[in-house]
């Protein structure tokens, strides 16, 4: 599904190399996790895949079901079924959460040549999904992420993911800033979306999120490369011994 080959990325303004040859394949139906220390390039990978400005791909490729993601605008990538749950969801004063969600859903449907969703159908679906994520009517009415707590912001990301039903979901440190209960809630939201046709790439510092979202494959990223891949036990090893040991072992 998601295929990343030898991806090299520089920061546009600083000529600083961040990703130095990432190879990664996420199959449909699988959950892959990327762990790694600060500054290893995990978030950069998510930004580059979703199309954020400021990065220059110098080598390599990234495709989603054969479509060259790197040639597309961010909105086209979204319409192809790529979704990034942000580490820091952006506050947008003046834009109602509901308006935003509906505009997003319909923009994607339109891009795929589907009819827009009727207001009634949309409302029904949002309410159902919001309920399972414990998002109340007030949060839906408020401007996007404005005045939301850390947990509310992350739940709001998962609600968007549920409404947009992407085929490839990237979660960038979705556990950061969450207490245990909030993390469980978010993980349940994610697990509910696990599906044979859908791939997940979960980026995290800590193993604890992976207790709730069980990965099929764990990758360790360091200094812009994936230095080791393995099963869920790899995450436990990191938790126990830290990244430095692992880096030494690989080197």
């Amino acid at each position: 599904m998601l295929e990343i080959k030898n991806l090299h990325v520089d920061l546009e303004d600083e000529e600083k190399s961040i990703l130095k040859g990432v190879d990664l394949t996420v199959e449909a139906g699988k959950v892959h996790a990327i762990m790694g220390p600060n500054g290893s390039g995990k978030s950069t990978l998510s930004y580059v895949l979703s199309g954020r400005d400021g990065y220059e791909v110098t080598q390599g490729s990234a495709t989603l079901d054969g479509v060259d993601l790197l040639a597309l605008e961010p909105e086209e990538r979204a319409a192809e079924g790529l979704f990034l749950a942000f580490q820091y969801p952006v506050e947008i004063p003046g834009v109602g959460n509901m308006t935003f969600l509906r505009t997003a859903v319909n923009a994607q449907r339109k891009a795929r040549g589907q009819d827009e969703m009727s207001a009634a159908d949309f409302l029904k679906e949002v309410r159902e999904k919001a309920k399972t994520l414990k998002i109340d009517a007030d949060m839906l009415k408020r401007p996007v992420n404005v005045g939301f707590s850390g947990g509310e912001k992350k739940r709001n990301e998962i609600l968007q993911m549920a409404m947009l039903a992407p085929k490839m979901c990237i979660l960038d440190e979705t556990d950061s800033g969450l207490d245990v209960d909030a993390m469980k809630l978010v993980a349940e939201g994610v697990n509910a979306l696990r599906d044979e046709g859908r791939g997940f790439l979960v980026i995290t510092h800590y193993q604890r999120l992976l207790d709730h979202i069980r990965p099929d494959v764990v990758h360790i990223m360091s200094e812009g490369r994936i230095i080791k891949s393995g099963g869920p036990e790899l995450a436990l090893e990191v938790e126990k011994n830290g990244y430095e040991n692992l880096k030494a072992e690989v080197a």
């Binding site: 979703s50 199309g51 954020r52 400005d53 605008e73 961010p74 909105e75 990538r77 979204a78 319409a79 990034l84 942000f86 969801p89 952006v90 506050e91 947008i92 935003f100 505009t103 997003a104 859903v105 923009a107 994607q108 891009a111 968007q160 947009l164």
Partner: peptide, 16 residues
């Protein structure tokens, strides 16, 4: 215009 907000909206599928 707030570039972060613009990117966020586009990442959700809204054309520029």
């Amino acid at each position: 215009i707030d570039e972060d907000a613009l990117y966020y909206l586009r990442a959700r599928g809204l054309p520029k």
